[in-house]
Design a protein around this nucleic acid. Sequence first.
DNA 1: CTTGTTACTATGATTTTCATAGCAATATAA
DNA 2: TTATATTGCTATGAAAATCATAGTAACAAG
Lengths: 161, 161
Amino acid sequence: MTDQTLCPVARAETVVGDRWTVLILRELFMRMHRFEEIQAQTGGTPQMITTRLKKLEADGLVKRRVYSKRPLRHEYQLTEKGEAFYPVILALRAWGETWCKSPREGRAVNYTHLTCGKPAGLGPMCESCGEVLRRESLSAQQAPKYRMEREARWETFKASR
Amino acid sequence: MTDQTLCPVARAETVVGDRWTVLILRELFMRMHRFEEIQAQTGGTPQMITTRLKKLEADGLVKRRVYSKRPLRHEYQLTEKGEAFYPVILALRAWGETWCKSPREGRAVNYTHLTCGKPAGLGPMCESCGEVLRRESLSAQQAPKYRMEREARWETFKASR
DNA sequence: CTTGTTACTATGATTTTCATAGCAATATAA
DNA sequence: TTATATTGCTATGAAAATCATAGTAACAAG
């Protein structure tokens, strides 16, 4: 933890400064908890996913939970430290939606702010009521295109084994 | 831009999903504009920095500006798209300060919210007045330890060439 | 006793990274 | 004039990471 620098950005980057790591966190935030699902939706090879999950576990963002004793199977869950990463994902999402899309493309996911019942928008606060957004008070609606994209990825993955 | 996915996080990650890239952006946000300075403060090799700067330029986050004609020298600046990445850096900083530090260590940088004149805190809004933070309304104070760390890195770098 | 499921591990080719050295084009100093 | 310094890179080769592909372990179901 006490690296060679005081800079919090650099420290964060030694933990999450990797594409696969961030994609895995995205999947965990989307409530995908199984190795298979994560692999399918990120498109990583098994090694990319295992090494990242092990590192995330060692860094305290992820914990394993046994969901089957025989055969022994685990699922991956966010710890408090992992959950706390949500604002970064939200900010990344906002930037990606705003700057990495052609005008015609719609949003992949829209959030409803459960507190006020209206669209939450892209910012850190609800665009409808102005309150700071917390993960618990958000409900995600995947755009049909995005849902289809994810379903297709799953089918392709299943078909290839 | 129109990758193989609608997911904004994945798209953002193809641009900034790399430790060096994020560290370079950090330096640009700290108003370091020269190759040398960026290299010294990130600790990257010249290739790591050049390839990332070229990619950032190609992706539209960074532009080069001539600051000397003879010899021809450029400096690197954030474009609007690059500036828009600030909330991600802020979120990453907040997470790093909160989760990647031992209790005794202080903050590397403190921000004063110019609008209200009080400490801005770690969140997306000013902890003193509640307003959303924008980069223009923030003034950064580096902690003495962090300033010394950066000065030392610069000296070491200069000494080694 | 064969097929399916899930979570990986193994392997070898390819690509990236890292450390170190060097260079080009000037400016400045001796 | 010649030597040294400055800045922003490029070159090189060894080491490490990544990728695609295949295979395995441990069971369950039919």
